[in-house]
Design a protein around this nucleic acid. Structure first.
Lengths: 246, 246
DNA sequence: CAAGTAATAACGTCAGAACAAAGTATTGAC
DNA sequence: GTCAATACTTTGTTCTGACGTTATTACTTG
């Protein structure tokens, strides 16, 4: 009843689907605080009449917000704004993106850039074990602190990435640029004492561990995109993630 | 054209929705290998006529598989079985579940079980800092090896969990039993050298690190469910996860 | 007055239809 | 024979309409 009416304008000439236009505007109403956690949400039928669109369209828009955890629907009860502190979904990002977002100045040194055969990486990427892969090893700095030693293996169709590209951009930015979008990744996170190589490149002194992460990434069709084996200075880095069971 | 016709039987008297019945049977056709990666999938309209259901029903069923990464749809082209090695979505599980699945004999010792006020935990759970919380510390063994030292804080409405419950069942199993389903969690993973408490309880000798994980878990409405601060023997444990951007 | 019951509001499921958009394959002109 | 226009296939979007299911509220009744 006393639900706030969020202002929504729809443009039927836009190439963007109606349900998406609606979803976008409802989303921003929540993220910018016009609607607060616990607030009752305008019901479907009222929205249908107010926006002059069909019920499936409204339902699909609302469903989009429910999937992202912004709304909670209960049959017979109505829809309310979720009380979630953290509306953000976990995204498949790279360390580079993280640093840029934090406003720190990242720098990348490329240590290795060569074609090799690596059985473990090939197996992880679901390719024949003797497939030649582009092997890249990089050290990522934040300011003057070396944070990560990253070793990645890329399948043949990406073997033309240049050393210069990798020094300038993050790996995932380069892939996105080429229209390659990793959407699924299997990661394994652990910890151990550093190797001498890691001690040297990450400036680890004394008895400090490294945080390790291996990752197999695939695109929407299940094609291998990259295999990565990374080590982080544990004293300066944690892996943040958002698990979402919806 | 030459797409295989997956056998699907639908029961209109079942309380289970039609789209779900269809999705289930299509899913098993892929997971048990009747349909293989790359195989063309029967098109929507053909399925509609064969199963005598409406197109929205078929579309919703197919969408369910697409969301789980089993199928790939391309407009004008058709639908094909995804080439994914790993169809399984990452699930919000506990170590206990992992061990049981591996067939190892888990054992839990409850070290602490008391009401306390903890500012950090209360803040994480989005509760007033002086809220009394149930603090539980446990050691989880696999066989005779101590794998994890787990400290959890639970909000007031869960403070009646008994020591016995916690020794017998996993925390998440107890919560499920009560109809509480954590669906979102913010986790932070790191590594460091063990404290003396951790050395003692996890039998860590010499210079071996621990893998640490803190977690804030919430239910679908955004209500706090638990705050956890865990340490794992890094030599025997890694955190496996599946990132999914769909 | 309390407990059961009926009305109501809201979301959930399902159908059938029409048109749009994106690829692919075919056809026709030069 | 090559290239461009056209036809066709398949998924994407949107609509209208109907009925089912669940929780709340108000009313009735013992």
């Amino acid at each position: 009843m006393g639900a706030l009416e969020v202002k929504v304008t729809i443009d039927r000439r836009s190439p963007s689907p109606l349900y998406h236009q609606v979803a976008e505007q409802l989303t921003s109403a929540i993220t910018d605080g016009r609607l607060k956690p616990g607030d009752p949400f305008e019901n479907e039928i009222a929205l249908v009449e107010r926006l002059k669109v069909s019920r499936p369209t409204v339902r699909r828009a609302i469903q989009e917000l429910v999937d992202r955890g912004l709304l909670v629907r209960r049959r017979g009860l109505g829809t309310t704004v979720a009380n979630s502190k953290v509306h953000r979904r976990f995204e498949l990002t790279s360390l580079y993106d993280d640093l840029v977002r934090d406003g720190r100045q990242p720098r990348t040194d490329v240590l290795t850039h060569e074609m090799t055969v690596n059985e473990r990486a090939a197996a992880a990427l679901d390719l024949p074990v003797d497939t030649p892969l582009l092997h890249v090893a990089r050290v990522r700095h934040a300011g003057e602190i070396p944070l990560a030693l990253m070793r990645n293996w890329l399948p043949p169709h990406l073997s033309d990435l240049t050393r210069e590209d990798l020094e300038t951009y993050g790996l995932y930015a380069i892939l996105r640029e080429r229209g390659i979008r990793p959407v699924v990744a299997q990661q394994s996170i652990g910890a151990r004492m550093p190797t001498s190589l890691e001690r040297r490149h990450l400036h680890i002194r004394g008895s400090q561990p490294v945080l390790t992460m291996t990752r197999m990434a695939f695109d929407a069709s299940g094609n291998a995109v990259e295999f990565g084996d990374h080590s982080y200075r544990a004293s300066d880095y944690t892996i943040e993630l958002m698990v979402d069971e919806r």
